[in-house]
Simulated assay, not measured.
Amino acid sequence: MNPTISIFDTNVLIQVVANLKVAQTFLLDGFFPNIVESDTQYVSIDVDVGKRRMSPFVSPLVEGKLVEARRIQTNVFEPPYIKDKRAPDLMRPVRRMLGERIAGGEMINGGAPMTAGERMEANLVFELADQVDMLKRRQEWMAAQALVTGKLTVSGDGFPTSTIDFQRDPSLTIVETGTGLWDAAGTVANPTNSVREWSVQMLKASGAQITDLIFTNSPYNALIKDDEVKNAILNSAIRANEDARLMQGPVAAPGAVLMGYWGTYRVWLYNDWYVDDDNKELPMIPDGTVLAVSDQLNGSRAYGAIKDPALGYVATAYAPKSWMQEDPAQRFLMMQSAPLVIPSRVNACLAATVTSSAA
């Protein structure tokens, strides 16, 4: 071993420190379980358009009243396209891999030393896994945008900025101001009443019931400071009832952590971030926001056809491909996908900005 290298240097340590900033998919997995793969550039979602109609009164001596059949609405969307293209470092296969002993010894988990070909294959697997991870994070971002705004705005190279509007009822996007904010000085807000009003608004707009409240940090801090909520937590502890069992101590975890139950609602604390096109790290859900969501949202992860003749315009969630350039020698790796996250029953979610604090 090179005598100038200390055994305490990072590159000598046998422990491999893996990246912990992997994509979290709480919103996707919780509220967008359906997978739709289209063999065209469009995806279609059928929605049962229900109205609270009643049967008509008619005299038995006259002809029956003609009633319109229950209507099914088909929403057609064109998903944005993703092409993640990479040129892996050509020299990586002849250099030590992450976790491989200095001077090319065996891997930290034992076994024979790696050959250059094995390193190349391992590097391609590493890059492919990173591409899939980035695609998951993009879809979690889409889910967050759809739930927060009821819309999705996308832009990219050769792709004009466009907005996909899922047509959520405007009453389900709430912005509190002044003393209506939960953390305002002299606030007149009552979180219990607010959530009760939200549940009625959603029930009226969609017929769906709130099952989950997803808090960002400052609204949750304001919630557990509210006297009515504190009393509910205390009474629940004393009487062993189910009114409020909420965690009050400091907690943070990747994605969402279940903080307890409030009435019939599951209460979550959500923390996740992404890096935008300007290389700024931003929260998936802006601090100050509370999402009220129903498990009847029936969301879908839809995928348009892969627009690549070499792959036969296949209908799949994502399609990796790899090829070699001869001179200068270079391997390329590309991941293609046409994803769109769709809140099929869009009025089964509500977003409220209730605090002025920013994380």
Rank of each mutant, 00 (worst) to 15 (best):
N235S: 11
F215P: 12
V154C: 15
K230D: 10
D169I: 03
D183K: 02
A189P: 00
T216H: 15
G180T: 01
D212N: 14
R239N: 07
T192A: 09
L246K: 04
L181C: 13
L223T: 06
I164Y: 14
W182Q: 02
P250W: 05
G178C: 02
A237H: 05
S155R: 13
D169F: 08
I210F: 14
N193S: 06
L203Q: 14
L213G: 09
N217S: 14
A208L: 06
E197Y: 10
K204L: 11
E197S: 05
G249F: 03
V229C: 05
W198F: 07
M202V: 09
I164T: 09
I224E: 04
A240I: 02
R168M: 07
E176R: 12
R239M: 10
T161V: 06
G249H: 02
N193M: 01
A240C: 00
T177I: 00
T187S: 13
I164C: 12
E176L: 11
I210Y: 13
V175W: 09
G249T: 01
L152I: 04
T179M: 12
R168T: 03
S155K: 07
R168F: 14
N193Y: 13
I224F: 12
G207R: 03
T216F: 10
L234K: 09
G156R: 11
T179Y: 11
I214W: 08
V188Y: 08
T187F: 13
L246W: 09
T163Y: 14
N217A: 05
P191S: 01
V195L: 02
I238C: 04
S155T: 09
A240T: 01
D226C: 03
M247T: 03
R239H: 15
P250T: 01
Q209M: 07
D212Y: 13
N241T: 00
Q209N: 12
M202R: 11
A184L: 08
D165S: 07
V229R: 01
L234Q: 15
L172G: 03
V195S: 00
F166Q: 09
T211K: 03
N193G: 06
Q167D: 14
I224C: 07
S218H: 11
N217G: 13
K230T: 03
D169S: 09
T211P: 05
V229I: 13
D212Q: 09
Q201L: 14
D227H: 15
M202I: 10
L213V: 04
D169K: 02
